[in-house]
Lab assay of single mutants.
Amino acid sequence: RIRTTFTSAQLKELERVFAETHYPDIYTREELALKIDLTEARVQVWFQNRRAKFRK
C-alpha cells in the first residue's frame, strides 16, 4: 500500500473532528470517510497517528 497524501480540505475536516473528540466512534469515522472520500481504515489510522502526535 502506498502512503496516503491528504488534501488540505481532508486535513481541515479531520482536524475539525479531532478537536471535538480524539476517539471518534465507527459511525463518526465512516461518515467522515464518505464525506472526505477516504476509506474508514485510513481515517482510523490518521486518528491513531494524530493522538500519538498530540501526546508528544
Rank of each mutant, 00 (worst) to 15 (best):
R1K: 09
R1A: 13
R1S: 12
R1Y: 03
I2W: 08
I2T: 14
R3A: 14
R3G: 15
T5N: 13
T5Q: 08
T5K: 11
T5I: 06
T5R: 10
F6M: 13
F6T: 07
F6W: 08
F6G: 03
F6L: 14
F6P: 07
F6E: 10
F6K: 03
T7C: 04
T7D: 05
T7S: 11
T7W: 00
T7R: 04
T7I: 01
S8A: 13
S8C: 09
S8D: 14
S8V: 11
A9L: 09
Q10W: 03
Q10P: 02
Q10I: 05
Q10E: 05
Q10S: 03
Q10D: 04
L11P: 06
L11K: 07
L11W: 08
L11S: 07
L11H: 09
K12G: 07
K12A: 13
K12L: 10
E13G: 05
E13Q: 06
E13D: 00
E13Y: 01
L14V: 05
L14F: 02
L14Q: 01
L14R: 04
L14Y: 00
E15A: 02
E15L: 03
E15M: 04
V17S: 05
V17I: 11
V17E: 00
F18V: 00
F18C: 04
F18D: 00
A19V: 07
A19F: 06
E20L: 11
E20S: 10
E20H: 09
E20W: 09
E20I: 10
E20F: 11
T21W: 03
T21P: 03
T21N: 10
T21I: 06
H22S: 04
H22N: 06
H22W: 07
H22P: 13
Y23Q: 03
Y23H: 08
Y23M: 00
Y23V: 03
P24S: 03
P24F: 02
P24T: 00
P24A: 02
P24N: 04
D25S: 10
D25N: 08
D25C: 04
I26H: 12
I26R: 14
I26M: 08
I26C: 07
I26Y: 15
Y27V: 15
Y27K: 15
Y27D: 14
Y27T: 15
T28K: 14
T28P: 04
R29W: 04
R29E: 00
R29K: 01
R29N: 04
R29G: 01
E30N: 10
E30A: 14
E30P: 06
E30I: 07
E31N: 02
E31G: 07
E31L: 09
E31S: 13
E31T: 11
L32R: 04
L32N: 00
L32T: 05
L32E: 06
L32W: 02
L32K: 02
L32M: 05
A33N: 00
A33Q: 00
A33S: 06
A33E: 05
A33W: 00
L34P: 01
L34R: 15
L34G: 13
L34Q: 12
K35G: 05
K35I: 02
K35F: 07
K35E: 04
I36S: 06
I36F: 13
I36P: 04
D37Y: 00
D37V: 06
L38Y: 01
L38A: 15
L38N: 09
T39Y: 02
T39R: 03
T39C: 08
E40W: 04
E40C: 03
E40L: 06
A41C: 07
A41F: 06
A41N: 09
A41W: 08
R42D: 15
V43Q: 00
V43P: 03
V43D: 00
V43R: 02
V43S: 01
V43L: 05
V43N: 05
V43Y: 01
V45R: 11
V45M: 15
W46K: 00
W46I: 01
W46Y: 02
W46L: 01
W46V: 01
W46R: 04
W46T: 01
F47W: 02
F47P: 00
F47S: 04
F47Q: 05
Q48H: 10
Q48C: 10
N49C: 08
N49R: 09
N49E: 15
N49W: 08
R50P: 01
R50F: 00
R50I: 03
R50M: 08
R50G: 01
R50V: 00
R51Y: 03
R51L: 06
A52R: 12
A52G: 08
K53A: 14
F54V: 08
F54R: 07
F54Y: 12
F54S: 11
R55Q: 13
R55G: 13
R55S: 14
R55W: 13
K56Y: 07
K56P: 04
K56D: 11
